[in-house]
Design a binder for these strands. Structure first.
Lengths: 298, 298
DNA sequence: ATAATCAATAGAAAAAATCTATTAATAATA
DNA sequence: TATTATTAATAGATTTTTTCTATTGATTAT
């Protein structure tokens, strides 16, 4: 382990360089002159070289080495100034960076809504959005690479803290000629239809399956796609049916040839909420965010 | 005055970043683990931001701010490493930079002799040569811009320390047809001849005048030139006479048409030696140099 | 369920930084 | 030239900081 001069010593030396007078420099450093003398002397002892010429008590002369020390100090101290300034800024309440992870089956439908709210309500905060599958997001938050995730429950969030925002129903989306005259469906009604779902890993798939799995035979009538848009296009073209959460149904840009029918008795649902590490340094920010978003979603 | 985290704290944080384990990092820093914990905690308090996530006691997670601190530390610490390494190197005996000033009437005649000696005898030292008039050199050494000067005495060196290297005689240099049959001259003999000297400021001029001034009438038979070479050319072309110190006479490259005649009773002289600030940090180096050069000049 | 490992905490001991008071040296002034 | 004022260095006391040992609470591995 190396033995460095202290930052205090470097600051003091810079003050001497600036004022070329011990008494004044000491004053500017809010210390007494003997303290300043002692500090410089100790630094010289530590470095094994004189930093100041003691030839003339009335005139301060830096040795070439002393000038080198001053130069290094002048390079280093501003970097620390910046660091402490950043720290100051970050330590303000409701400020700093929130690294927010969102699952793909929420992001496109909720983000356009809530991001402007956040930016408006918390102008000193910055948000970095990451879109990924639940499992990956949970990994990342555990690794400290994310501060907060917006996801769907139920999900095994281990030791994460969670906050529920809303619970939404699933709807059946099918071609227009399916289920004629039906105002609502039971999950049983979905049997024997091609059920189109997202590929493995998407919690939406699991939530949909969970709601219906008892009714679904273990056959090949399941199809996996990589995005909801793909699935919707396939439904519109008559390939089969799918289950959509309310926020997707509410989207204004659903394809034309799709009929939406509510599900009843029981109505399958998924829950949307935040999750974060217990004891995260961001808890206060997260609480403020949760409260604000929940208020807005009502 | 700003309040920075200490370098120790930054080092400790870097160790944690490196080993991702408090116990091991503490060991590498030669401190105990509680000390390390306390140091990080104190730094966090100082900066007003958490640096590590305390979510999980078994896994170390840096906050984004913590990563910023590490980054700053990694930028700063190497600079200080270099500084201390330089200090180490410089603190070795007979090492470092000597800023040597030499007057123009010595430099061309002595430097080719002694510079190789110095570089050979003190391989760890570096020499920076400055050529200027005595007054300017004395100014510069007082300002701390030079460590050592090689000059001619007598000279008012105020509070400088001096060390004599040699005393050399002056010779008369004249056209071949002057002073026929004379093996030596008195300063009186120079009267009524055009005396060519360097311009004001050169101590050689003063030393020459000092030797002869009582004999010299205050007339216009004095001519001032800017370099010894100019004067020698003028002497060779019959413009007048001049006084040369022995080291110049010994030069192999004197012009052809010049006769050198010793001066006797009294023989004018000048003294060559070193001068430096009393209490200069370089005294030990300077003593070694003086001793070496004097031994060589014998 | 038990043992092992980790970081945090508490309190004592050691080291450091800083202070006041003074001295020695230099420069300015009478 | 003697006196005064100003400078940086020194000495010793005090306060602050750093570090240590011993222990706890939490988590993981066996």
């Amino acid at each position: 382990m190396n033995n460095y001069p202290t930052l205090r010593q470097l600051q003091y030396l810079c003050a001497i360089d600036k004022y070329m007078n011990f008494r004044i420099a000491a004053e500017e450093c809010f210390i007494t002159q003997p303290t300043l003398s002692a500090a410089i002397k100790e630094m010289e002892q530590l470095l094994g070289n004189q930093v100041l010429d003691r030839t003339n008590r009335k005139k301060i002369i830096f040795t070439p080495f002393g000038q080198e020390v001053v130069q290094t100090a002048k390079a280093i101290l501003p970097q620390l100034d910046q660091l402490t300034a950043n720290a100051q800024r970050l330590s303000e309440p409701l400020s700093g960076l929130i690294r927010l992870g969102i699952i793909p089956t929420i992001a496109p439908y909720l983000l356009p809504d809530i991001l402007p709210i956040l930016q408006n309500k918390f102008p000193k905060m910055a948000f970095k959005i990451t879109e990924d599958l639940s499992a990956s997001l949970v990994d990342k938050i555990q690794e400290g690479d994310l501060d907060l995730i917006l996801m769907a429950f139920p999900y095994d969030t281990e030791k994460l803290e969670t906050f529920s925002l809303l619970k939404e129903n699933f709807y059946c989306a099918c071609p227009p000629d399916y289920f004629p005259n039906k105002k609502s469906l039971k999950t049983d009604d979905l049997k024997n239809h091609h059920l189109l779902l997202l590929e493995d890993g998407h919690c939406l798939r699991d939530h949909a399956l969970e709601s219906c799995k008892l009714q679904l035979p273990n056959d090949q009538k399941l199809l996996s796609a990589t995005s909801l848009q793909t699935i919707l296009q396939m439904v519109a073209q008559g390939y089969g049916i799918t289950l959509l959460p309310k926020m997707v149904v509410d989207t204004k840009i659903l394809p034309q040839n799709i009929k939406i029918i509510p599900l009843k008795n029981p109505t399958p649902t998924r829950e949307i909420g935040f999750a974060w590490r217990k004891g995260s340094p961001q808890v206060s920010n997260i609480q403020a965010i949760s409260k604000e978003i929940k208020a807005h979603l009502k």
